[in-house]
Amino acid sequence: MKQIAILIALLYSTLNLKAQEVKFRDNIDKDSLFTISVQKLPEHMREEYIKVYNEGKEHEKEFLLLMISMPRSSKQELITNYENKKSEILTLKSEYQKLVPKNYIVEIEFEPESKILTTNEEITIKIYKKKDEEKNSEGNEVERNDGFEVVSQNWNLKPESKELEDVLLSINWTSQTISEIKKLLKDANCISIESGMTTTIGYARSGMGKYFYKVFDEILTSEQKEEYNDGCQYIFYKENIVLEFGGGAIGPQCFERE
């Protein structure tokens, strides 16, 4: 139990999760929400979490409640969604590729308005451009390891904001483009997409982790199947589809075991 208490204290002091900005909505009964949320934890952990919550200070209680009330998903839900939404997922991939300018990689995620926190809908968008090898480098570009450099990385943008509009202008997108992408994602029951040699589609967040589909243009070769089937970050599913799990700052770092 002491280990959990220490972990919560460390996380609160280091991550803080925008503690000054994120608050629970006034109509939320936090004790009732905790009672419901703690039941989603493995049975052997519940007693310890309940003890820490009951003995904690108010800010510690809120932080613990925030952590355990985060959305949860699973590998099985990831697979089920693909089987139910295969056509929509493939349409999302092909239509999104048409929207991204040549020699660019664009990643976008929509975070809906929270029902329990005072956070509104937000958009994260990251833009990368293929590096011009003939261009003289000023030494200040931020590069990836795939020959692309960072144009901009923007988190928590507000819809219809001037900041978002300026970001979109850099790739000739408009609010209509955003609406189109948002609908494509909704139809596929997904939350994010990143273009590139392989399209990476975010299905759902789970705690601080996230489940993805990696959609290749062609059926994977034997070598690719081996590369993308480590049983931790990647699981080869079938044909041109690889399942991916990205771990967060804390929590699971690999797919759950059967």
Results as ranks from 00 to 15, higher is better:
residue 120 N to E: 12
residue 54 N to W: 00
residue 35 T to I: 14
residue 55 E to W: 00
residue 230 D to A: 00
residue 81 N to H: 05
residue 30 K to M: 11
residue 58 E to V: 14
residue 92 L to D: 04
residue 71 P to V: 12
residue 52 V to A: 10
residue 10 L to Q: 12
residue 1 M to N: 14
residue 123 I to T: 04
residue 37 S to C: 09
residue 49 Y to W: 12
residue 147 G to V: 01
residue 64 L to H: 05
residue 128 Y to H: 13
residue 59 H to A: 10
residue 195 S to T: 10
residue 174 T to D: 14
residue 217 D to P: 00
residue 114 S to P: 00
residue 78 L to E: 01
residue 149 E to I: 15
residue 157 L to K: 07
residue 221 T to G: 10
residue 19 A to E: 13
residue 58 E to L: 14
residue 120 N to D: 12
residue 143 E to G: 07
residue 22 V to R: 08
residue 117 L to N: 01
residue 54 N to S: 15
residue 189 N to C: 02
residue 208 M to S: 08
residue 222 S to E: 14
residue 189 N to I: 01
residue 103 N to L: 09
residue 210 K to E: 12
residue 155 W to P: 03
residue 76 Q to Y: 08
residue 67 M to L: 15
residue 137 S to T: 15
residue 177 T to W: 09
residue 195 S to C: 03
residue 217 D to G: 10
residue 153 Q to M: 15
residue 58 E to W: 02
residue 116 I to A: 06
residue 211 Y to I: 04
residue 123 I to S: 04
residue 189 N to H: 11
residue 195 S to M: 08
residue 76 Q to G: 06
residue 27 N to E: 15
residue 29 D to S: 13
residue 118 T to E: 13
residue 109 E to I: 01
residue 247 G to Q: 06
residue 25 R to T: 04
residue 210 K to L: 04
residue 152 S to K: 15
residue 147 G to D: 01
residue 28 I to P: 00
residue 206 S to I: 07
residue 6 I to L: 14
residue 210 K to S: 10
residue 121 E to D: 08
residue 172 N to I: 02
residue 40 K to G: 01
residue 200 T to G: 03
residue 144 R to V: 05
residue 204 A to W: 02
residue 254 C to Q: 07
residue 143 E to D: 13
residue 172 N to P: 05
residue 135 K to V: 09
residue 246 G to F: 02
residue 109 E to D: 00
